[in-house]
Design a protein around this nucleic acid. Structure first.
Lengths: 172, 172
DNA sequence: AAAATAAGTCAATATGGCTGACATAAATTT
DNA sequence: AAATTTATGTCAGCCATATTGACTTATTTT
């Protein structure tokens, strides 16, 4: 077997470097899954990211989206415009704060993002199959730990509950 | 605590979506660590990636590097030229195949990549601290499983042995 | 009324990627 | 030996995504 070495218990720095590279390879391959579907509708990965997060947290403001993506509003502008013009995303004036433009996916947007998520989820589900519930918990906890501490509350509050709330009665 | 939900055991699709997002956040933050250092020398993330992999597998050919990065030679050209012109990477004609230009980091290149790796490794080491050796093995195995199957031999052969061989006598 | 905020826009620029075409040298095949 | 293939480099043009900076409009907060 060629892939035995990475399973060894290496020195801390070596282990970190291995994980750095594994993160690169994993990310490189998993973000490329939707490329063909995106190209067919004339979109890129930036459109995918916007659609994904709007879908996952419907009604989010533009400012919140910018904060998740960590890009400037000028960068978002073109991509969001194309998504709105193409009928994938809808903007509604906020009721509490009428300055806000709250973002929602349309049926068309939902159809597209569902197809994109299916491609990536298949890869992730397959990768997770070999692990126990505890091991999967560790994997999720590790990825969270790699993320900036300051983002944790953000992520847990706005994104992850949206998914666990779909499976109620499943406490701790 | 706000970040309890992601630790729950969710439905397969929900779990996959959570992991997709966690991968996005983890990658987003960990690749940004070296940005300031890179900007100081006038380089970007593309230079970092090239320097990293050349450093980790000294003497690799241009073709091998392209295969790892999954970009075209025209995309690599400018970045590699700047690294060579700046004295960070050295090209030597292959002895077995004189068409090849084998790539090596110079002392200058090693100094820079060492600083960049230190930044990312600190983040990864900190994230790994809370996990046992078995859990860490699972984390590495998961990231490998997310990567295309066809890349496994490549990664294990060319990259990871270079790091475990640096700590000899540390078997299993 | 004044100041701050949310969003949008215009303009210029940088980075990193792409395709296509072509050139050179060296290795391999016939 | 000639023809072909391979490894690399290069020119030219283009596209997608991102940046900074300046400014506008509508709305909310002070």
């Amino acid at each position: 077997m060629a892939d035995i070495n990475f399973l060894k218990a290496p020195q801390p720095r070596d282990e970190a470097v291995a994980v750095i590279e594994l993160l690169f390879f994993a990310y490189r391959d998993f973000v490329s899954d939707p490329d063909q579907v995106l190209a067919d509708v004339g979109f890129g990965r930036a459109h995918h990211r916007v659609l994904h997060f709007v879908h996952r947290a419907p009604g989010m403001s533009v400012a919140e989206l910018l904060d998740i993506l960590k890009i400037t509003k000028q960068s978002l502008a073109r991509v969001l415009r194309q998504l709105v013009d193409g009928g994938y995303i809808e903007q509604r004036t906020g009721s509490a704060d009428r300055r806000q433009r709250l973002l929602f996916t349309t049926d068309r947007g939902k159809d597209l993002i569902d197809r994109l998520i299916a491609l990536q989820a298949r890869r992730i589900e397959t990768a997770l199959e070999q692990f126990s519930a505890d091991e999967r918990r560790s994997i999720r906890a590790f990825l969270m730990a790699v993320t900036d501490e300051s983002e944790h509350a953000h992520i847990a509050d706005r994104l992850l509950p949206a998914q666990t709330s779909a499976a109620p009665g499943k406490e701790t």
